[in-house]
Simulated assay, not measured.
Amino acid sequence: MSIQESLALPITTFNELMVFDEYIEPQGPIIDDVRHAITQANICRNSPNMKIEGIKKIKASDHRMIKDKVFKSQEEMKKQAEIRRQNQLNAIMSKLPPDQAARVKQKIKTGVNNGSK
């Protein structure tokens, strides 16, 4: 669509297109992922090597590559950052000798950081 065509549109149509372009269309990869998951599940179901019990257990959701929730809230992002920080801390602590690890844990509990509170 050219600039002249977009300027000639009624404002309601322009706003609808803007909402579609900004908020709905980015969900396109999710729709493609669902389509591919269904196709993959059907391919597995049509395999001559599958038994009936295996065919009944196959779900399209097992073949999804994108999680259901794409847009995360601020709380979810904070929770993920805290989990990531805790995992990093656990990785560092696992490399320390037990006596040093105990001292570091004690300092973390008391809130001491680099010798100051």
Results as ranks from 00 to 15, higher is better:
Q4W: 03
L7E: 06
A8W: 03
L9Y: 01
L9H: 02
P10V: 06
N15D: 12
M18V: 14
D21C: 13
E22T: 10
Y23L: 14
I24R: 04
E25G: 03
P26S: 02
G28I: 06
I30F: 07
D33I: 04
D33K: 01
R35G: 09
T39M: 14
Q40I: 05
N42F: 09
N42E: 12
I43N: 05
N46Q: 13
N46E: 14
P48Q: 06
N49A: 13
I52T: 09
K56L: 15
K57E: 14
K59T: 15
S61C: 08
M65K: 15
K67V: 07
K67S: 12
D68Y: 04
D68V: 12
K69M: 09
V70Q: 09
F71C: 11
Q74N: 11
E76Y: 02
K78A: 14
Q80D: 13
Q80R: 04
E82Q: 08
R84Q: 13
R85G: 01
N87E: 11
N90P: 00
A91S: 07
I92E: 03
M93G: 00
S94K: 07
S94Y: 01
S94V: 07
K95E: 09
K95Q: 13
P97F: 02
P98A: 00
Q100L: 14
Q100F: 07
A102Q: 09
K107D: 08
I108F: 05
K109C: 02
T110D: 06
V112N: 08
N113D: 11
N114P: 06
